[in-house]
């Protein structure tokens, strides 16, 4: 057998944006995700769920296009035969037992009764819920509900697994088992995409990490690469001064400045820099040269604060 063409084994986002009215969900995401365990990491509201919902057509992109192993999200018949998604919604159809739940939704695949029964039992076995399988889901604990969702996502043996905060609510033992399962699935050449707002939780197990903040992808790649990449992220500074355009002309020569933009009110300059310390030193120099600088302030503390939040130490100056 010839190996499938490259695009058949990748999940790709091409310049995807999604707005909820005025609110930004994710913006200009361009990604290509190879098989293995991929973690989407970012604080609450950073767009992890939005990204996963986009992948599965639960929401539609405002712009851009998405392909999952070459399939668009709007071909449910093809897509969901090879993709399983465990969402963050903690709700289930009313009145079903764990087994009925998985069995009933497997029937939607058009598979015969016996096969559905077999697959349902297998999946339940796999998440260690066999003894609770015939109890109503309404009586499950948080961890059990988390696991039954997981079982539902893996029941049809998909090549792509999308799991939104799958480790939430699991006790340490089950967590270790679940992580081992992800590893096993990834080793079989599948895509396992998990989200988390705690980097420590996933950095050891992930083959690659995608860091999200406020709807933007701030870093992606192997965890070691991500750690240094985030340090090199440009930082934005807003300078209020009397002659912003003159200042712009001055700072543009510096190679630490990536971008300089007049502020919309005309009374300031927005600057992106890779090396904040060097830039501040430069600024002291300029201030001596007749431009009156009122204030200097980081325009967005995003990257720094995300870094702090995720990795837990000050980014090195």
């Amino acid at each position: 057998m010839t190996p499938p063409p490259l695009e058949q084994s990748l999940i790709t986002f091409d310049n995807v944006s999604r707005f909820y009215g005025e609110v930004l969900g994710v913006n200009r995401v361009t990604l290509s995700i190879p098989p293995g365990i991929t973690s989407l990491v970012g604080p609450n509201g950073s767009g992890k769920t939005t990204l996963m919902n986009l992948m599965t057509a639960l929401v539609r992109p405002t712009r851009g296009s998405i392909r999952i192993l070459g399939i668009t999200p709007h071909q449910p018949e093809k897509l969901f035969a090879l993709l399983g998604y465990s969402t963050q919604f903690d709700a289930f159809p009313k009145g079903l037992t764990g087994f009925q739940f998985i069995y009933s939704f497997l029937r939607l695949f058009g598979k015969p009764h016996l096969e559905c029964e077999r697959l349902a039992s297998q999946a339940i076995e796999r998440v260690n819920l066999a003894e609770a399988a015939h109890r109503k889901i309404a009586g499950y604990s948080k961890g059990m509900r988390q696991r039954i969702k997981l079982a539902q996502a893996i029941a049809h043996d998909p090549r792509v697994l999308v799991l939104d905060e799958p480790l939430n609510g699991l006790d340490p033992l089950v967590r270790a088992e679940t992580i081992a399962m992800f590893r096993e699935l990834a080793n079989q050449g599948r895509h396992v995409i998990v989200s988390s707002h705690i980097l420590h939780e996933v950095d050891m197990i992930s083959d690659q990490v995608i860091l999200l903040s406020n709807g933007y992808v701030v870093a992606e790649g192997k965890i070691s690469g991500v750690r240094s990449e985030i340090r090199d992220q440009p930082m934005q500074v807003l300078i209020r001064c009397n002659r912003p355009s003159a200042l712009a002309a001055k700072v543009f020569d510096e190679d630490s400045v990536v971008e300089a933009r007049l502020h919309s009110d005309g009374g300031g300059l927005l600057i992106k820099t890779r090396d904040a310390d060097k830039f501040y030193r430069l600024l002291n120099h300029i201030a001596l040269n007749g431009i009156e600088i009122e204030t200097v302030a980081p325009a967005d503390d995003n990257v720094n604060s995300v870094y702090e939040y995720l990795i837990g130490e000050e980014p090195q100056k």
Partner: peptide, 8 residues
């Protein structure tokens, strides 16, 4: 969403 995530 359970319905929308089935291959239907």
């Amino acid at each position: 969403h359970f319905y929308l995530l089935a291959p239907v």
